[in-house]
Amino acid sequence: MRAVIHLGAAAVLASVLAAAVPARAETIQVVIEKLVFSPAEISAHVGDTIEWVNKDPLAHTATVKGGWEVMIPARKTVSQKLETAEAVDFYCRFHPNMTGRLKVEAR
């Protein structure tokens, strides 16, 4: 009887722990084609990775004014791990009419 109770408690404890463990980090693809970021509005969590997939024959950047910059060469894919919770506007420094918004939430 006692063993059964313990087992039940262990199961409850296990499920509580499972809920507390963060969901698996995701990889989010942002495709750049014909000078457009899509999606242009990105929602992510700390620990996720953005894959910038540049299908254009031109180099682009994802640049946050006064912040970080990712250089994305022509027809290349660049990964960026998101380390910080932030909500920022980004643009391409070479083609400033390319814009987007990134929201990174704490997990």
């Binding site: 000078l35 254009d56 009419n97």
Partner: peptide, 17 residues
């Protein structure tokens, strides 16, 4: 056609610049 469309998008940016 696709390359020309990319060009158009790009050159519209050049015009604005």
């Amino acid at each position: 056609k696709s390359l020309l469309e990319t060009g158009l998008k790009l050159f519209q940016g050049h015009q604005a610049h």
